[in-house]
Every structure is written in structure tokens, then in C-alpha cells.
Computed example of a mutant assay.
Amino acid sequence: MLELGRLPNERAAQALIDYLKGQGIDCQLQHAELGVTLCVTREQDYAKARREYEHFVRNPYDDKYLQASWENGNTGTKLDYGAPGLQLVTQFLSGAGPLTLVVMLSCTLIYLGFIFGFANPIFEALSFFGAVPDSDSTQIWRVFTPSLMHFSAMHIIFNLLWWWYLGGKIENMLGVTPLATLLLIAGTLPNLLQYAIGGPNFGGLSGVVYAVVGYTWIMGVKRPEKGIGLPPAYIGFMLIWLVFGFTDMFGLSIANGAHIGGLMVGLAQGFIDSRRRH
């Protein structure tokens, strides 16, 4: 069976299942740790079912789902999505896996430490080699830890939203291994490139974000049945933002080396993984 995605509760999922049944698509529900997982049994149905799933996520109260429940399912089905606040939390958690959430929590706690007066000791502990006195190559963690530091609200919000959206999708659809590989490689090699280009004073998850963008892009083109594609408009936005980074248009200090390095890592891993049979 091929996984379509996850929904916060069984009642919401049943409405989509009933609709797909009316379209001749067999879709089954499986209980997950957070919410429920929807799977189709036939590979030839996946593309159409995936489009309907994405439409349902955006428009869960569309009348056609209620009508489908009357026609194809239990007429007592009620589209009860729970309390709005609880639904939002559930959707947030079900949209990401453990690794995605751990990285988000780590970045958030580090950023809060910066805000509440611990900027100097945090920077001294996590910055790249040479950014502070007495830091040297024996402190191997410094190759990676700058990726966890953010220096503004816009910086961390931008990065974590993309990390949650794409990293969570990769982890939920393909498992933790591809995401962990991207995190480890794109959280280190692009930092080395950024250091060579601009020196040791940098930070942020942007390199990893561009890696998951590149990876999702390639997998969406080469292996669309995996269900982690990215709309062309989103790709265009990220590439435009990459180009703007080489200008002074926004007056920001942007780690262009990390962005380019991360994108290359993601594209390379995407090509490698897309050629695997499973």
C-alpha cells in the first residue's frame, strides 16, 4: 500500500475515504501514533488520490465530502474535527516526525537563550571554529552546531516553517533515515563552504532548509509516487530568494555559501535516493 498522508482523527479521515470510494479508489485507514494514516491499495490510483488528499487538507468542509459520506459511507458520519485549538496542535504534531520536532525544539530553545541574556555563552559554545578564542578543530561539534543558532525572529521563523513543512513530509513519507542524512550532511559541509567564503561568524538552519528543498524537488520529479513533491511556485520562490542573497537589496547578512552548499547536497541526495528501487 502507498501512504497518502496523515490526518488528525478518524472521523475526518472517513469523510475522505468515503469520497475516494465514490471515485473507485480503495483507500484504507491505519492508526498512527499521532492521528491516522491514509493508504491506497493500488499504485495506479495514487496520483489522483494524492490530489484529492491535498484538496481535502485545504478544504475539509467542502460539501462534496459530506455528500460522499451519505452516498458511500455511514449516513451517520459527522465531520467532527475537534476543538480548533486542539486540531491545530494535532495537525502540527502529525505533520512532523520526532527528528523534525527535536530540531525545531533545539533551535527554539537556543534562540530563546539568545533573547534572555545568554547570547555570549551560547555563541562561545556553538559557533564555528575561529569565531571565538580558544576554539579549534578538536571541538568537532562546531562543524554542525552553527546550524542551530538563529539571530532574529524572521530568520528562525522562516527556517523552521520550511523545516517543518518539508522535513516533516520527508520523515513521515520516507522515514527518519533520509532526513537524518540530509540534516547531518547539509548541516556540516555547507558550513565549511560558508566559512571558506565569508569567515566563521554565521549561523542558521538555512543550509539544511535548502537541502530539503532540493531533495523534495528532485524526488517529486523523479519519484512522484513517494508523495513529497513541491509546487513549482515554491521552488521558484526559494531560487529567487537564493539569488537575492547575493545582492544588498534587503540589507541582510545572508550565508550564501551555506544556501548553495545545502541546495547541492539536497539535489545530490535526491538523485541518489530516486534511483533506489524502494
Rank of each mutant, 00 (worst) to 15 (best):
P8C: 02
N159Q: 14
I140A: 10
R6D: 01
A131H: 00
G175W: 12
L182E: 07
G198N: 11
Y165R: 15
G207C: 07
L34F: 08
G262D: 00
M264P: 03
F144C: 03
E3W: 08
F56L: 14
N59Q: 15
W241M: 03
F271L: 15
G236Q: 15
K48G: 01
F237H: 08
A186W: 06
L29S: 05
R142Q: 08
A119C: 06
N120L: 14
V102K: 01
Q194T: 05
L182Y: 14
L160M: 14
F271D: 12
Y165Q: 07
L230C: 05
G245R: 05
Y195K: 02
G82E: 02
M149H: 04
N120K: 13
E71D: 12
G236E: 14
F158Q: 07
V208C: 04
G76R: 12
H150K: 05
W163S: 02
C107K: 00
A211N: 02
G117P: 09
Y111M: 14
I170C: 02
V132D: 10
R277S: 15
A12W: 08
G236V: 09
W164S: 02
F250C: 11
A131R: 01
T188E: 12
E225V: 15
E54T: 03
Q269G: 06
L7Y: 14
P133K: 11
T100M: 10
T90M: 13
L242P: 08
G251M: 09
A125F: 10
S94V: 02
P133N: 07
T145G: 04
P98M: 13
